[in-house]
Each structure stands twice: as C-alpha cells, then as structure tokens.
Write a protein that binds this DNA or RNA. Structure first.
Lengths: 135, 135
DNA sequence: TATTGTTATACTCTATAACTATA
DNA sequence: TATAGTTATAGAGTATAACAATA
C-alpha cells in the first residue's frame, strides 16, 4: 500500500514544484539547508538520502537560480560551504506552505484519531535505522 | 517521510522475495491473481499499478517457473487467460506469510492505537483515486 | 478499423568508477 | 596518501511507439 501511495503523493507534489521551478531533490536540499547549513556536500547528500554524485547537478541548478550559494571554505579549500540565499529561503517557505496545504486538505478527510496515529507511526518508522526495518 | 520509508520497506522485502525466487512485480502479480483471475493481461497490469508492456517479462518468468499458466481464451483468441498454478498459490502464500511476519515484528513496536490509526489511514489513502490526491 | 499481446526504442534515474584539486 | 568535489560511464527501471495476430 505504501509504495503506490508514495508515488501518488510525489506525483501530486510535482505541479507545486514545477510552479516554483524546483525539482524534488532541489526542494529536499532547500529544506535541509533551512534547518542548518551543511558542512560538506557529501554530508548534505547523505542527510537527504541521496548520493554525493547525484546532488551536484541539483546544486548547479539551485545556484544558477540564485537559491543557494556555494563558496570555498577558507579553512579547507577542498570543501564548498553551501547556504541558502534570501530568495532560496523564500522559495522553500512558499513550496512548503503549498505542499502542506495539500496535505492538510488530504489529511482532514481522516478521523482525528487515525490522523494522529498515522503521523505518529510514520514518524516512528521513519526514525528507524534501515537495518531495524530489514531485520 | 513516506517515500524513504517505502524504499526501506521494499529493500527489506527483497531478501524474502529472493529466497522464493520471485521479483517484486512477480509477487504483485501472484497476489493479484490469488483474489480473482484476470480477464486480460492489460487489466491485470493496470490493477497492480503497472504497464501492460512491463509485466510481460514478469509473466514470462512466472510461467517458466511454473507459478502461472497462460492459455489462449477460446472465446477470443487474442486474449491470454492467466491463472495461478498450485505451486504459484503455495509460493504466494509462503511469501505473504514471511512478509507479514516482518510487518508484524515492525508494527508490534507501535502503540496499539497508533497502529490501528496508521493502518486505517493507509487503507483510506490507498483507496483514493489519483486525482483525489493531486487535487 | 480496433484491440490484445508483444517487441523495440528511447528516456530517466541511479550507482560505480575514474579524475582534479587540495590537504 | 587520503579526501571533497566533479565528471563519465554503465546499468536498472520505465514509458512510448511500432508490430503481428485476431476480432
């Protein structure tokens, strides 16, 4: 049940993301950077469940759109310090608000108790390490 | 939260499926056929969220393994009637039991109320048509 | 002409391995 | 030599289009 639902939810988010001209991974990066800046790109990638090679194009796009900044770390010139621009922060907020509005519309159809249990179970299961799920 | 969780759950099912030498789509087909035989392959594909072109290789494998039978419909020789063999039925039951045992182990860590709400919400959301989710 | 199953092709996403620049 | 970022290549999964058989 979960896999098709995940596909449907991602498909439902697409129009919102396209309206703000960001990809799904792009939005994941923006959301991750909103909470705290990333030490390295590799750490940033891992924290959103991606590969360091996979987010490079994403970062290129975000930078070209002026949503993030990448500057060499003076302390270690190998690493690039990635941070949100003001516009990036605004875009992230706008997309998040739009997506949460859709979620609210969807979840409001559930009985309050089911909704609470659903979200709590989801948070618990998401917090488990992979080997706890696979056994 | 849902998409990574779905990925983790699918990864956790892999060893079980490999132990019975069926693919994920193969298991989806077996489970679908257990409930009722399929009128056409296209309908079978659609009912498990796949494409008619995508399940052909799956059906080939299942047939070669002796888990399903495909025979031309005498009434309309264009269509192939797909049905489970006894062995296919046994394999489906065994895989389902193994997967449900894992699910049980996972869900048993949840408070009973959250667990009920989680499953009820999941069933409701899964029953929604796609356009109800996207808006 | 339309439909079922099939095959062939192209496209997207992802993973792996090599390369550069710094350390 | 080891690491951060990058690029290039190959692979899996998927979607689209063309094809043969039957209606």
């Amino acid at each position: 049940m979960i896999a098709p639902l995940a596909r449907a939810l991602m498909a439902a988010e697409m129009p919102v993301l396209e309206a703000h001209e960001v990809s799904m991974w792009g939005y994941a990066v923006l959301s991750r950077l909103r909470d705290e800046p990333a030490r390295t790109q590799a750490a940033l990638a891992q924290s959103i469940g991606a590969d360091k090679t996979r987010i490079i194009g994403v970062l290129d796009d975000l930078q070209e759109q002026g949503l993030i900044e990448r500057e060499p770390d003076p302390a270690d010139r190998r690493v690039r310090l990635v941070s949100l621009t003001d516009q990036g922060r605004r875009t992230q907020s706008a997309v998040q608000a739009a997506i949460q509005a859709r979620e609210e519309r969807l979840l409001s159809q559930l009985p309050a108790a089911d909704r609470r249990g659903f979200l709590r179970a989801l948070e618990f299961l998401s917090s488990l390490p992979p080997d706890e799920i696979s056994g």
